[in-house]
Design a protein around this nucleic acid. Sequence first.
DNA 1: TATCATTTGTTCGTATGTATC
DNA 2: CGATACATACGAACAAATGAT
Lengths: 261, 261
Amino acid sequence: MAREIIRHNAIYMQVADQLAQAITAGEYEAGSKLPSETELMETYGISRPTARAAVSELRTMGLVESRHGRGSFVRPQSAPTSALARTITRSGKRYGVPELEAKEQPCVTRVHVLGTHAELLQRREEDADDAFSADHLMTDPGTGARISHRVIIPLDVASEAPALAETPDAPVADLYAHLAEAGHTLTWQEYVTARTPLPDEREVLGLTDASPILITYRVTYGTGDRPLLCEELHTAAARSRLVYRITPEKAPAKRPRPAKS
Amino acid sequence: MAREIIRHNAIYMQVADQLAQAITAGEYEAGSKLPSETELMETYGISRPTARAAVSELRTMGLVESRHGRGSFVRPQSAPTSALARTITRSGKRYGVPELEAKEQPCVTRVHVLGTHAELLQRREEDADDAFSADHLMTDPGTGARISHRVIIPLDVASEAPALAETPDAPVADLYAHLAEAGHTLTWQEYVTARTPLPDEREVLGLTDASPILITYRVTYGTGDRPLLCEELHTAAARSRLVYRITPEKAPAKRPRPAKS
DNA sequence: TATCATTTGTTCGTATGTATC
DNA sequence: CGATACATACGAACAAATGAT
């Protein structure tokens, strides 16, 4: 019954495992050169495609990085990551977010609210609500890592706070301010996931490999917990680390039980 | 000056790009079968290794899943992900965390505080401080996804709150309570990153592929912002989504500038 | 500056094994 | 059993980037 989840019989996998263990055990220093494919062929008595497959595994594991004409190098275990604070500050009526360096002019388009955005903004996909989409490309001052940032502003929200429709590409702190001025009491919630980047995402973020990207959706809620905005942020997981401050909340007298009829 | 970051010249990459776009555009339904390698060879006029390389790219992108003897199938775009709330509630002196189902008996070991743990607990690696490590294997009740959870309790912290040393494998809510009883005012901060799992991590979490895992480090700070505990949580990014509530903080009159001399 | 050896990247061909239907 | 499909493995060749001569 117990089905083998992973096949370790394959030669290239055995070689990859051995090398992975050696790397994680610290037998190869960070930045040091892995044996070349030719050397692997000789030491393990395998063919070139097999050696390549083993190194390819290490690459997708994020353990090594291959450079054309030079070799494969061990990536630093705990890479120089910069902390990306996902906090919001408030001074009076003005909300602030950690500053990032803008790299390009923001780009505004009209989109339909679909998929995760529809789910988080609590809209049905069938309605295909229109929205503004403001795309920003920024850099993390710490590491220089690129960050792509998109703000989705549903049209009905924009019509309630016209300042949003005029400058949907403004910094999010301004968008928050406009919503606060429109009488909303703002709260936020953030959803974090990760996945391997698609080719075009790789290009946008300047990634050379298929190492994962962190994706966060920040939803701004207004009065009555109505979702107003949805921001989507992409960043290379290997270079940045998200930081959240967790503030304890008052526990309700009776724990709400998720409906599951 | 503008260096080409990604080569799209490669045939297998071009094929992978086309297929990836078709999949993300919804031309293939979730769960539907991709053209077989033989079909790809014919339609694109390429060899078998090239067709395989293209499909392999799609696999590491997490777009498709290949099954021996059957074919490659499109993975659901927005997989059934469950939300993993990373919140802490408080009722009186008792702190609560969202409940997870324990899958195995916790396992306690003695470890040195190294790497990221040392960094977050603000200890120097050279000191190689001893600590308890309590490993829990749990499941997300929503999706049944496995979650591995490790608590690092430095020995000096344990000696200040002896209850910690007695039952380091207790639920974290109990650990928090013990620290609060020892006179600490607790605050938390969480660091999120992601990476491709190592073979043994794959096995622990029951993953069949190399799709990314989300890693969160939750640090518990006591009085004077002294780091007391470090929790590390691993979960498959494809099946879970972390949820953070963001509470605005009062902005300091003058923004503290990170020292960088 | 030019050449050469080394190393990875890409592509083909071919063969065999093994799971599924 | 046979056909189909993916998995593994070998061999071979050339391209392209790199670093040293």
